[in-house]
Structure formats: structure tokens, C-alpha cells
Amino acid sequence: MKRFLAIYIGTEAALERSEWKKMDDEARKARETAGVESWMEWGRVNSASIVDQGNPLGKTKRVSPEGLSDIKNIMTGYVIVQAESHEAAARLFERHPHFAIFPGDSVEIMECLPLPGS
């Protein structure tokens, strides 16, 4: 089995399309509750494929030759899964609650490759 890092992507455009910020508190809470329940169900259904449940991601710091800086990116969380192929890993995220219920934009899946020489 190969391992894959899946990054949850969230953009301002996705927030606008979903009209998430325009919802009243009651509607947003109901959507959040449904989203969390669906996300947990996705985790149960795919538990055999999940290697690391991951977490939401917070603010970002960049370190470069120029020094340290605060930046903003579009990554909102991650999970590590295992699958026979890249396509099989990607198919785990079809209709995922991240974008089917929540205002997430997409999930990007990339293979975790072995270190050269190992």
C-alpha cells in the first residue's frame, strides 16, 4: 500500500460561493452539526485507509533565507491515507463533507514518496 497526504483547501472564493458568512447563526450551526456528523461518518467508513487522522491547521509562519514572516495560505487541514494507487486514494475524497457540506474548496492528494537512497 502506498501512503498519500491529503490537504484540505479552503479559499475565500469557496466561502463566498457557499454564502457561509451570510447564513444566520441557526442555519450555520445546523450545517456545522451536519458537517461534523458526516465527516465522522466518512472517517468510520474509511477507517481502514486512514493512517493519520490529521488535524485542522492554524496560522502559518514562513522561514526562508530572508528570515521569518507571517503568511496566509489556503491549507486548512490534512489527513494521511493509504491506498493501492493515487487514483484510489483520490476517490476516497469524492463528495467529502469538506466541500459537500462545509465551504471548503477541494482536497489535494499527493503520494508520500520514499526518501532517495532508503
Rank of each mutant, 00 (worst) to 15 (best):
residue 1 M to W: 03
residue 1 M to D: 04
residue 2 K to N: 09
residue 3 R to L: 07
residue 3 R to M: 05
residue 4 F to V: 03
residue 5 L to P: 08
residue 6 A to H: 02
residue 6 A to Y: 06
residue 7 I to N: 00
residue 7 I to G: 00
residue 8 Y to V: 00
residue 10 G to P: 06
residue 11 T to H: 04
residue 11 T to I: 00
residue 13 A to Q: 07
residue 15 L to V: 07
residue 15 L to W: 13
residue 16 E to D: 05
residue 17 R to G: 12
residue 18 S to E: 07
residue 19 E to L: 06
residue 19 E to R: 08
residue 21 K to M: 13
residue 21 K to A: 13
residue 22 K to C: 12
residue 22 K to G: 11
residue 22 K to R: 13
residue 23 M to L: 14
residue 23 M to Q: 08
residue 23 M to D: 03
residue 24 D to M: 13
residue 24 D to T: 10
residue 25 D to W: 05
residue 26 E to H: 07
residue 28 R to V: 06
residue 28 R to W: 07
residue 29 K to A: 14
residue 29 K to P: 00
residue 29 K to F: 08
residue 30 A to E: 02
residue 32 E to F: 06
residue 33 T to C: 07
residue 33 T to L: 08
residue 33 T to W: 04
residue 34 A to H: 07
residue 35 G to I: 02
residue 37 E to S: 09
residue 39 W to Q: 02
residue 39 W to K: 00
residue 41 E to A: 07
residue 41 E to I: 06
residue 43 G to I: 03
residue 43 G to V: 03
residue 43 G to M: 09
residue 44 R to H: 12
residue 44 R to F: 08
residue 44 R to A: 09
residue 45 V to K: 08
residue 45 V to S: 01
residue 46 N to M: 10
residue 47 S to F: 11
residue 47 S to E: 14
residue 47 S to A: 10
residue 48 A to T: 01
residue 49 S to H: 09
residue 50 I to P: 00
residue 51 V to A: 06
residue 52 D to H: 10
residue 53 Q to C: 09
residue 54 G to N: 07
residue 54 G to A: 02
residue 54 G to M: 03
residue 54 G to S: 05
residue 54 G to H: 01
residue 55 N to C: 11
residue 55 N to Q: 09
residue 57 L to Y: 02
residue 58 G to Y: 03
residue 60 T to K: 13
residue 61 K to D: 05
residue 62 R to P: 03
residue 63 V to L: 15
residue 63 V to E: 15
residue 64 S to Q: 06
residue 65 P to Q: 12
residue 65 P to G: 12
residue 65 P to I: 12
residue 65 P to K: 14
residue 66 E to L: 07
residue 66 E to D: 11
residue 67 G to T: 06
residue 67 G to M: 02
residue 68 L to W: 12
residue 69 S to T: 14
residue 69 S to K: 10
residue 71 I to L: 09
residue 72 K to W: 03
residue 72 K to P: 00
residue 72 K to R: 04
residue 72 K to Y: 03
residue 73 N to K: 04
residue 73 N to D: 14
residue 73 N to H: 11
residue 74 I to E: 03
residue 75 M to D: 09
residue 75 M to P: 05
residue 75 M to W: 07
residue 76 T to A: 12
residue 77 G to H: 01
residue 78 Y to I: 00
residue 78 Y to E: 00
residue 78 Y to C: 06
residue 80 I to N: 04
residue 81 V to Y: 00
residue 84 E to A: 15
residue 86 H to P: 01
residue 88 A to W: 04
residue 88 A to H: 02
residue 88 A to G: 11
residue 89 A to L: 09
residue 89 A to M: 11
residue 90 A to R: 01
residue 90 A to K: 01
residue 93 F to W: 09
residue 93 F to Y: 11
residue 94 E to T: 03
residue 95 R to I: 15
residue 95 R to V: 15
residue 95 R to M: 15
residue 96 H to G: 10
residue 96 H to S: 14
residue 96 H to K: 10
residue 96 H to Q: 13
residue 100 A to C: 14
residue 101 I to L: 04
residue 101 I to H: 02
residue 102 F to R: 02
residue 102 F to C: 02
residue 104 G to W: 04
residue 104 G to S: 09
residue 104 G to T: 08
residue 104 G to E: 04
residue 105 D to E: 15
residue 107 V to A: 03
residue 108 E to F: 11
residue 109 I to Y: 07
residue 110 M to P: 09
residue 110 M to L: 08
residue 110 M to C: 10
residue 111 E to T: 05
residue 112 C to L: 15
residue 113 L to G: 05
residue 114 P to W: 04
residue 115 L to V: 05
residue 117 G to Q: 13
residue 117 G to W: 11
residue 117 G to N: 08
